[in-house]
Design a binder for these strands. Structure first.
Length: 208
DNA sequence: ACAAGGATCCTCT
DNA sequence: GAGGATCCTTGTT
């Protein structure tokens, strides 16, 4: 048992809070451990969310209990990991958009063509060795992925901005600042598609 | 049974 | 910066 494991109680909260709090957390899949460096929130009533057209077999996990993986195939070739949030019955999830590998580097390289950069959701899914069949699995030691509390990321190292790749959504939803990036020295350090978007979550405190 | 369209990534230029 | 890869899911005949 791992006392730092994040379970249903953590994920049952507001998706935006969960997305922010996941920065610095660790995704564990066998020998591979990744530190979460970028997240996005997808919520009920949000036209960018797969749930907005109603329940389907694919997006069903979002309606289920929190603390479950919602995994789907994007563009026919990329496996994307989402973590189901909010209480059961409220469809919502957090997309893990980027991460930094901290263990199992050889496995990551083997799955990523020799690379260790994980600045993109398809790269994260590949590094973890996820498959679409993993969708709906509970997060934890028994499932394909476990999540545990890593290190706390201070607001000064977080940049918020609009979500990536949701051109089909309504303008208002496209503008929502529901993308969180960890830009500190141990985070993304400016890499990734959202590198030039967004603004600091908290501006530096003026000098005394 | 069919067609369209993706919450992307990689390889060029 | 542009384009191709690649195939499942979904809504429609």
């Amino acid at each position: 048992m791992d006392s730092t494991a994040l379970g249903p109680a953590f994920f049952a909260a507001d998706t935006r809070q969960v997305a922010r709090a996941l920065l610095g957390a660790e995704l564990v899949a066998g020998p591979v451990v990744l530190r979460v460096a970028e997240t996005e929130a997808y919520r009920a009533g949000d036209t960018a969310c797969h749930a907005h057209r109603g329940w389907t077999p694919r997006n069903a996990p979002m309606w289920g209990p929190p603390g479950v993986a919602y995994v789907y195939l994007c563009y026919g070739l990329h496996v994307l990991l989402n973590l189901v949030s909010e209480p059961e019955g409220t469809p919502a999830c957090v997309l893990v958009r980027a991460a930094v590998p901290v263990a199992g580097l050889e496995t990551v390289r083997a799955r990523r063509g020799g690379r260790l950069d994980l600045d993109g959701p398809g790269k994260v899914g590949a590094a973890l060795g996820l498959r679409v069949a993993d969708s709906g699995a509970a997060l934890g030691g028994a499932g394909p992925v476990a999540v545990r509390r890593g290190r706390a990321v201070p607001d000064a190292e977080v940049v918020v901005g609009p979500r990536i790749g949701i051109e089909a959504a309504d303008a208002a939803d496209r503008a929502l600042p529901w993308n969180w990036r960890w830009v500190g020295p141990e985070g993304l350090r400016g890499r990734g598609k959202g590198a030039l978007r967004g603004k600091p979550l908290v501006s530096p405190v003026p000098g005394r």
